[in-house]
Write a protein that binds this DNA or RNA. Structure first.
Length: 254
DNA sequence: TATAATGTTTGAAC
DNA sequence: AGTTCAAACATTAT
């Protein structure tokens, strides 16, 4: 029994890693439940975790007639076979070990995950559907592309780092309106979002993610040397956007 | 030490 | 009544 830790940067790929680390408890019976989550904890006691899945930034544990949805939000974390100082929000103990979640959102939802989630919307899923994402994206005419990329209904799992990196890779400025971006470029954004999610996953696994940032938190463009622009609260989501004003195109109505 | 960050939900205000 | 927006939540590194 060894201990594992850490989720920071809880975007979709990090939740895939979380799910993999906890999969050792899939099919196992819950012996003890504790934590300060405001749900009926007892519902899990003595029951088997039938499945563990993820959808975007959601981690899902299925039981007989309900499932638990965990969202790490901004500051959530978890530990396997060890504890932090802080009180766990949810702790599950099994014969073969235990895990705890901290400062996260925990919900108990009646029914089956398949009734709630469209797996084709999850950028990390085997059945992710780029066509579907594209069709939803083009409808968001009046949105800024930086807002649409963070829309979990379209790109479940994409977070702010992925947003900034994808826009850099596709050479689009975050303040471009969706309706002003050519169809071909929108398709490239969809494709690149998916690909970058898997690059993020690969680098995250080997603790090399930050090393590969091209624009996020950077001061100087790696490609042209221009100063990277940081806008603190861009768009309706008010998130940080980093971009190179030289390499990235601002699409406008003209 | 004050600040800010990878995110979402809630409820007030219009 | 529907939309929008700010506040709330809460941890950790810099």
């Amino acid at each position: 029994m060894h201990s594992e830790t850490i989720v920071i940067m809880p975007e979709g790929p990090s939740i895939v890693i979380l799910r993999e680390e906890l999969s050792q408890f899939k099919g196992k019976k819950v012996l003890h439940v504790s934590g300060n989550a405001k749900i009926e904890l007892e519902r899990m006691k003595g029951k088997k975790v039938l499945d563990m899945r993820s959808w975007g930034k959601h981690f899902l544990m299925s039981f007989d007639d309900f499932f638990i949805r965990i969202h790490l939000l901004m500051f959530g974390s978890y530990r396997v076979n060890e504890e932090k100082e802080a009180a766990p929000r949810l702790k599950l103990q099994f014969k073969n070990g235990e895990f705890s979640f901290y400062t996260c959102s925990v919900k108990l939802i009646e029914g089956n995950v398949d009734d709630v989630y469209d797996w084709e919307r999850d950028t990390m899923s085997d059945v992710w559907d780029p066509e579907k994402a594209y069709k939803s994206l083009v409808l968001e005419k009046e949105e800024l592309i930086c807002d649409s990329l963070l829309d979990q209904e379209i790109f479940a799992g994409v977070g702010n780092i992925i947003k900034n990196e994808v826009l850099f890779l596709t050479k689009v400025q975050p303040a471009s309106l969706v309706k002003d971006i050519p169809m071909k470029k929108l398709k490239e954004i969809v494709k690149t979002a998916r690909e970058y999610c898997f690059d993020f996953l690969r680098w995250k696994r080997i603790f090399e993610l930050k090393k590969h940032y091209r624009v996020h938190t950077k001061n100087v463009c790696a490609d042209c040397g221009s100063k990277i622009v940081l806008m603190q609260k861009m768009g309706k989501r008010k998130r940080r956007s980093f971009f190179c004003p030289h390499c990235q195109v601002l699409y406008t109505k003209e």
